[in-house]
């Protein structure tokens, strides 16, 4: 093992960038699972679907991140439809049916994966942009631009969602629906509509996260499986439904993973992520930022 302060600094810088990326791919799940209690295991698959649509738009000459933004309204509608189906078929029928909803989301993930294989094949897809494959040289440090872009987008996304959830009427209603649906109904609001709207937002955010995934690296149809454990780990570590908590736990995971990768061996990295989760849940079962 080679250790130096320079290497440690670089590991932390890479970790911060990686952590923000992790937070960005988890933030949609933080809304759907953390706030709405929907067992949305298809979240990474929807995100990879976003990556493939980004690939299509980027091939027409659009910037990948801009493509992700353009896709957001369509994914919002997709999210509304998915939630409506889930609500009518499972959630409305009580908690047992809700558990069966888990099977629905697994099914949805498989359908998306198979659909992508049939449409695009199993080959890896990548995009090109000026900020992919080059880096910002800062003295002896070299920081990949693609990770800086992911970092910026993740910060913007977290900030936007935090402001939206705390400062707008619908945002507060989404938080309220997570706390007490009955009380919300007494206030004259329809919890199902609020949840539908929130699920739409979560899915729209997945489109942009998908764009970031294909900016950071190549994608293939089954790639959602790589993200399923990590995204749930971040959301649970944060404390369900906390946006700033999602960013913070993404950072914790990213920095610890980067340090382990650089100094102790890559094989230990996944164990560190889940080890951290176990330790935190042992001490604070509600997560780092949960109430």
């Amino acid at each position: 093992m080679i250790f130096s302060l320079d290497l440690l600094t670089e590991a932390v810088i890479f970790g911060v960038l990686l952590g923000c990326f992790y937070a960005a791919v988890s933030i949609g799940l933080s809304v759907s699972f953390g706030l709405l209690d929907v067992p949305h295991v298809a979240h990474p698959a929807v995100m990879i679907l976003g990556s493939y649509f980004t690939y299509l738009l980027a091939n027409q000459g659009l910037d990948p991140i801009l493509s992700g933004v353009i896709l957001m309204p369509a994914f919002f509608v997709l999210g509304v439809l998915i939630y409506r189906f889930y609500y009518e078929s499972f959630e409305k029928r009580g908690s047992e049916a809700g558990v069966r909803g888990l099977a629905f989301f697994f099914g949805l993930a498989f359908i998306i994966e198979i659909g992508l294989i049939l449409t695009f094949g199993v080959d890896q897809r990548t995009v090109r942009a000026a900020y992919i494959g080059s880096s910002w040289e800062l003295g002896d440090y070299r920081i990949p631009y693609r990770m800086l872009v992911a970092f910026g987008v993740a910060l913007a996304l977290t900030l936007a969602l935090t402001i939206y959830l705390s400062k707008t009427f619908i945002g507060r209603a989404i938080k309220a629906v997570a706390q007490d649906q009955g009380a919300l109904r007494l206030m004259g609001a329809n919890p199902v509509r609020i949840k539908q709207w929130a699920f739409g937002i979560a899915t729209a955010v997945s489109a942009l996260a998908g764009a970031m995934v294909i900016v950071v690296g190549p994608v293939e149809p089954s790639m959602d499986r790589l993200y399923i454990g990590r995204t749930f780990c971040i959301v649970v570590l944060a404390g369900l439904g906390s946006m700033t908590g999602t960013l913070a736990s993404g950072l914790i995971l990213g920095i610890s993973e980067s340090i382990v990768l650089m100094f102790f061996g890559a094989s230990w990295a996944p164990a560190v992520a889940f080890g951290l989760l176990l330790v935190v849940l042992g001490i604070r079962p509600q997560g780092l930022f949960g109430r």
């Binding site: 990949p144 990770m147 690296g217 990768l261 990295a269 996944p270």
Partner: peptide, 16 residues
């Protein structure tokens, strides 16, 4: 070093 299939970004490994 061996890296696990879940590795997302190789910047740290290449730096090492």
């Amino acid at each position: 070093q061996n890296y696990p299939p879940t590795t997302t970004d190789f910047s740290s490994l290449i730096r090492a």
